[in-house]
Design a protein around this nucleic acid. Structure first.
Lengths: 231, 231
DNA sequence: CCGGATCTTTGCATTGTCGCAAACTGGAGA
DNA sequence: TCTCCAGTTTGCGACAATGCAAAGATCCGG
């Protein structure tokens, strides 16, 4: 396994404002590991033994209903924390985390949380404000689901994915991990059929470029019009 | 204004595990005030000058969309904290807070947050785990909106309200603040018409007892059947 | 390079929910 | 007590979105 260096962490939001020594200390307490595409990083209900930093890749956070329907709660991008149940006073994970691509992660045992927070108050502050952002973001999602139509929600989902995880190509902004119509439907509370109809419509207008588990945003402003249209 | 005693706080979740001296200290930093029914405790976007404890009453947390539609994010019950923007690294409130009935609150200036947290780590821990619960609860709400039908969501909303704020009467469990069909629709992402149809249907079956801004849950298990019906 | 699994597209019938309109009702204030 | 108004109920037509079904496209492994 390769040596890890504090400079890997220095630029990541969870560690902003922390000294090099502090980063070394954090790193010394962590274990690095890989998670292959489509394998679980952790599962809902499982005891929260660790919390994680995603060093490379993308992770899907998924909830499953009693009826077996899946809902994608969020995507975790490279550089973000996940599984921080202990930080919010829970001792089991509230959702499943699945690698959307081959991933590299750092793991800290949950029982080191208190010591880490005590030693690195800046890390604690960063983490709590991230939790706050997620709460606010999730509330916005509730508002969206409660008030907008499917078409608008799907447009918003694609715009968000492009913004947060987009990679520039010569055709437009490509969502840089495999994402199916089914995934989009699980993000927006609809069916893969409806998503497919919408995307193929936008594709034929040249606003996006679709493909198998692939979406390229070509004309973002057109989708923004769709997302905010009164009707 | 009446004298406040630390015993008022001792039994409330935000202060659990804190010493009498600590409670006195918290209380000494706070200001008590009243908020009449339908007045704002704070508004979305406003600078988060204070955070609050609801000593008596109920507060509605509401978001408004650009199109002017309202969404009720949550109800705050007696004994809960609200407006803790500073705790999660925000300097403005992310939603509106409106008194659902005449309320009594305590307010702490936001700039005392750091000092309070430093002096009372137990309070900080309690607060962060409350934020965590709200995040998990809000995520569950996303799952519900994404997968369940209106009928189930309305049933769930009533069951939750009855559980969290219900008062036992001879007819059943009464939601003990004025709540309109419109309010229920703004909690569940539907229209007051649809809510009215559902409630009057359940009323005629004897499962609930409706009234003007009033709902009494009579046969909770029947609503639970509705809430979890496959179809 | 072929076969099969997976993902996507599309047509059609069905329906849950909305939007509009109008009538009804109960309670607060004059 | 009467009046008025906010809140509630209900009918009906419209439509967005679903569910089902089948065909088409794309990729991966042998």
């Amino acid at each position: 396994m390769s040596r890890l260096d504090a400079s890997l962490l220095a630029d990541l939001p969870p560690f902003s404002g922390m000294s090099r020594d502090a980063l070394d200390d954090m790193l010394a307490r962590a274990v690095s590991f890989r998670s292959a595409k489509d394998t679980y990083v952790f599962r809902e209900g499982e005891e929260a033994h660790s919390f994680f930093l995603l060093l490379d890749g993308y992770v899907r956070v998924v909830k499953v209903t009693p009826e077996g329907e899946q809902v994608i709660v969020r995507y975790i991008a490279t550089g973000e924390l996940l599984g921080i149940a202990k930080a919010i006073g829970r001792d089991s994970y509230p959702a499943n985390a699945v690698a959307a691509v081959d991933c590299v992660l750092l793991a800290w045992p949950s029982n080191t949380w208190d010591a880490i927070v005590a030693a690195h108050p800046g890390f604690a502050t960063n983490t709590y404000s991230m939790v706050g952002s997620r709460l606010v973001g999730t509330q916005d999602r509730v508002v969206e689901l409660a008030t907008e139509r499917v078409e608008q929600r799907v447009a918003n989902a694609i715009l968000s994915l492009a913004r947060e995880t987009g990679r520039k190509t010569d055709e437009g902004i490509l969502i840089d991990f495999p994402i199916s119509r089914q995934d989009i439907s699980e993000m927006t509370g609809t069916t893969l059929h409806t998503v497919s109809r919408l995307l193929s419509g936008w594709d034929s207008k040249g606003w996006i470029k679709g493909g198998r588990q692939k979406i390229t945003l070509v004309e973002g402003h057109k989708l923004m019009m769709v997302a905010s249209a009164r009707d």
